[in-house]
Design a protein around this nucleic acid. Structure first.
Lengths: 179, 179
DNA sequence: AACGGAAGTGAGAGACCTCTTACATCGACA
DNA sequence: TGTCGATGTAAGAGGTCTCTCACTTCCGTT
């Protein structure tokens, strides 16, 4: 096998998203990630003590990137904060396979990972600012966005080249209706 | 081990819901269901040729029961069809662990199971009647309801005795806002 | 009562997974 | 150049899962 890899740690996180996007959390395994990278199945354990620590790093990355995606979408269309955020959520989750079910997966609460805690906190803070500290509105928006993302993942919509745009638009519309 | 079981086939389906409600599809296994029933891990294969056929029967049962739950809720409050349906969905999924991610799970499309096909078709028909054949409204309602159910499953709401009622009410409210 | 099919059982093959261990190799630096 | 820590590898222990097989037990029918 080819020996080293500029930065296997980062590659493992990146590739975890691919595995998640294709098979969902159900099919995720450390071994599958290693296989796809062409490294031995022991290699990941040089960088993460166990599976949950890798998933925790994925969660932290997802929280960070999702927050950035939402912030960018809101900045691009400040008049439609909630709609933009919901649309960004759908796009992000469809593309990466990592939504709240990955970011807030129950098994991660036992993992001591300050980066993850910080990134998820920042994500929640950004969303709370969007709803002006209205927790219920935040929950409702998240429910709408995650619901649409789940429908896409479940194959409810015919898969076309611009399906994601379509569905993101519908999620935005539904989020606006919440006001 | 105790020998027979009045109706192991039905018991397997029933117990599958318990396993799904507790661990989600990720943790579901035929072996776990058998263990919980106190039968050998080979016993289920007398009634279902493989894991996917068992899951297909669970899907059929869930589609049937969910349809009944929605129909009952709508009948009890005909003025608020969409809200009642969304609330009923949340209650059903929180209680059984079997929402659209189980009923319409991708791996089931390969299983030839006419009962399942009929039950899922009936479920969709009932929901379509509710939205007066408006497919987009059906999708939006499903997204809202499933989103809230997912948030509960992810532990977003503090777990109290009447959390489900609370959340079902919020889902109903959000569904009404879609109109 | 005997029998035959339905419905269990225990054992286990074969797959895959997590994680460990002992060893090999690489790159940086004295 | 030689050494050493970081980062790979191969092998494998131990676990769980799906599904099969040969065998047994139960029960309805004749």
């Amino acid at each position: 096998m080819g020996y080293h890899h500029g930065d296997l740690r980062a590659a493992l996180i990146r590739t975890s998203f691919d595995v998640l996007a294709e098979g969902g959390p159900e099919r995720f395994s450390v071994a599958a990630v290693a296989r796809r990278l062409g490294v031995s199945s022991a290699a990941p354990y040089r960088h993460f003590p166990d599976r949950d620590h890798l998933l925790s790093a994925v969660s932290a990355t997802a929280a960070h990137d999702l927050r950035a995606a939402i912030a960018a979408a809101v900045a691009a269309d400040p008049a439609d904060g909630l709609g933009a955020a919901a649309g960004a959520y759908v796009r992000y989750v469809v593309r990466t396979g990592a939504g709240i079910h990955v970011i807030f997966a129950a098994e991660l609460y036992a993992v001591p990972d300050d980066d993850r805690r910080e990134q998820t906190r920042a994500l929640m803070t950004t969303m709370l600012e969007l709803t002006r500290a209205d927790v219920r509105l935040l929950e409702a928006t998240l429910a709408v966005a995650h619901g649409y993302a789940s429908l896409v993942a479940q194959g409810f919509f015919s898969q076309g080249p611009d399906t994601v745009d379509e569905v993101a638009g519908r999620a935005a519309e539904a989020a606006r209706a919440l006001l």
